[in-house]
């Protein structure tokens, strides 16, 4: 069983924080197929988030084929997120770290780097949808 943290100051909406934490737990192997997610009541009791927020997160995960509600029993993991195996993450993390060192040497501070990353991500998304 995992527990969720919901950060009220995050720009990421609470339901998406829950979705991301389930996906992250699946990627890290903390959760696996067959595992049960906490009930809505348990999440609500621990975090004070709105019950509909938790339902929305679980529906999102269900739509992506990661979890499945079983009447009277709870919500269970039925799949892993698509994507490259964990090795890919660490390889990309190393090359990104290399890039960040280069950016720092060029005089960029964290804020400039984050801003540059956001702009690049948005441009890439626009390119994909164009």
């Amino acid at each position: 069983m995992i527990s969720f943290r919901v950060d009220g100051r995050s720009v990421v909406p609470p339901y998406l924080q829950i979705v991301q934490q389930v996906r992250q737990a699946l990627r890290m192997g903390v959760l696996d197929v067959g595992d049960k997610l906490p009930t809505v009541r348990e999440v609500v009791a621990a975090t004070a988030v709105n019950p509909n927020t938790v339902l929305k997160a679980y529906r999102d995960l269900e739509r992506d084929g990661l979890v499945e509600p079983r009447a009277g029993h709870g919500t269970f993991v039925v799949g892993r997120p698509a994507g490259p195996p964990p090795g890919t993450h660490s390889r990309l993390a190393r090359s990104l770290a290399h890039w960040v060192r280069g950016a720092r040497e060029a005089g960029l501070d964290d804020e400039s780097i984050e801003s540059l990353l956001r702009i690049t991500l948005r441009a890439a998304a626009d390119e994909e949808t164009a």
Binding site: V40, R41, V44, A45, A46, T47, A48, V49, N50, P51
Partner: peptide, 9 residues
């Protein structure tokens, strides 16, 4: 608020 949200759940 958690108590309240539980009652609604």
């Amino acid at each position: 608020l958690a108590h309240l949200a539980e009652a609604v759940a």
